[in-house]
Amino acid sequence: MRRSTANCVLPMPVITEAEPITQADDCQGLYPIREVARLTGINPVTLRAWERRYGLIEPKRTESGHRLYSVTDIESIRLILGWLERGVAVSKVAQLLANTKPADNPQPEASEYGEWQSRISGALTAFNESELERLYGQIYSSYPVEVVFQGIFLPLWQQLSKVQDVFGRTSEWLMLDGFLRGRVQHRLQLQAADARQCVMVVAMPELCRELELLVAGLLLTRNDRVVRVLAIGQPLEELSLVCEKLEPEAVVLYASHALGTAHHRRLMRLAQTLDCSVSLAGAGSNVAQEALAGSSIGCLGSEALLMNQRLDADLKATLGS
């Protein structure tokens, strides 16, 4: 899908693999703009424009006026880049970042994420699946499921997908992708079949990959809810037939990229044909909030806690309980 440039006159930055951030003693945990450009792949001209024109980042200044960036600034830059890759105009990113701040729950530090990702990368480089399995078990037993995937595995998966022109990286990405899809599918199969609620999770055509869809389904699972994730390629026009058989309380459409006009039209038509709650989840839903305001379609967001809270509210309103 082509990215709109109506609101963005800046050239798209070159994407590089995210590197672990290590603090330098001589700058007390702050980084000059040239180092930030190296770590993120975003050139200094673009970084300055994001600050001056859009207020996306606010680096500190030395007495002589030189910019210094914190670890938090660097993580924000990577989040901004993620939104741009999903087709969002840079002029809209500030509001999206403000609307999608994670809940105030204890989270591992960025350095802790990086340490796990570095160890996973080592296992992938060696094509050592037993070590990958061991690390996965350690991580899964140490953190909530949303941290396992949204904090550690998926960011690394996304990084590898961007550098597949580097020799060997395609094979590493395929190994990680296949490994994670298998583990998530296994978790989904362990759901209680007699759960009170049934929720169907379906991909918006061409707007997400299978792993993203499966993880979304896993993040929505609960003891009182069984989640059925339909295969990538499920025709939206046939969802009414599937719903007739499965009788879900809710259908959640998932999109990790921004919806185009045609997608919005299809979504609106779909909601009119289904006799249940219809919602949109994923990064694409954050972008679509304004366009869907006033419709019957709920926007669940992309953070696990927020998705579940909003889905609960939609179900409560729909079921009248």
Rank of each mutant, 00 (worst) to 15 (best):
L241K: 08
L190R: 11
E85F: 04
Y69F: 15
V278K: 01
L68H: 04
Q309N: 13
S279Q: 14
R228N: 08
E212Q: 05
A258L: 12
D25R: 14
I15D: 11
T318E: 14
E172T: 01
Q23E: 15
L292Q: 02
H263F: 03
G168A: 09
R222H: 05
R86N: 05
R67H: 05
M307K: 04
S141V: 09
E109V: 07
R134W: 13
E172D: 07
H264G: 03
V166H: 14
L180S: 05
L214Y: 04
K316M: 14
S171D: 07
L259R: 09
E133D: 11
C276V: 01
M268K: 14
T318G: 07
R181H: 02
K162A: 12
L56I: 03
A258V: 14
G182Q: 10
V227P: 04
C299A: 11
S321A: 14
H66R: 14
E172I: 00
A126F: 11
L132Q: 01
E244C: 09
V145H: 06
A123F: 08
L96Q: 07
P144T: 12
S302A: 15
L47M: 01
S321R: 12
G137A: 15
Y254V: 11
A193S: 15
S64T: 15
S295P: 10
L300I: 04
G282A: 02
H264T: 06
R2D: 15
G55Q: 09
L259S: 11
A283K: 14
E19D: 11
Q138I: 13
F149D: 02
N43A: 08
P106T: 11
S302Q: 13
A103N: 07
Y54E: 05
N128G: 03
I21F: 06
A281I: 02
T46K: 04
A6R: 11
I152D: 06
P155L: 09
H264P: 01
G151W: 01
I232C: 04
S171K: 08
R3V: 12
Y113V: 04
V229C: 06
D194W: 08
E17P: 02
S130E: 12
A288P: 03
L214H: 03
W157M: 12
R265G: 08
V147G: 01
D25F: 13
L154V: 12
W157N: 09
F127D: 03
V199G: 06
C208R: 04
F179Y: 05
M268P: 02
E238D: 06
V45S: 13
G284P: 11
G217I: 10
A231T: 09
K60G: 05
C198R: 15
Q164L: 09
N128F: 06
K92S: 14
A89V: 00
Q289V: 10
S111Q: 09
L267C: 13
S118K: 13
L10W: 12
G301C: 05
P102M: 12
E112P: 00
G29P: 01
G217L: 09
V45E: 09
D104A: 12
L47T: 00
V184Y: 03
P106K: 14
Q158I: 08
N128K: 05
E247L: 15
E19L: 15
E237C: 06
E35K: 10
R2S: 10
N43V: 11
E131A: 14
E210H: 09
Q272G: 03
L47V: 00
E303M: 13
L124A: 04
T170S: 07
V215C: 06
E212R: 00
R38C: 07
C27Q: 10
Q28L: 12
R78S: 02
S279D: 12
V278P: 01
L81H: 02
Q23N: 10
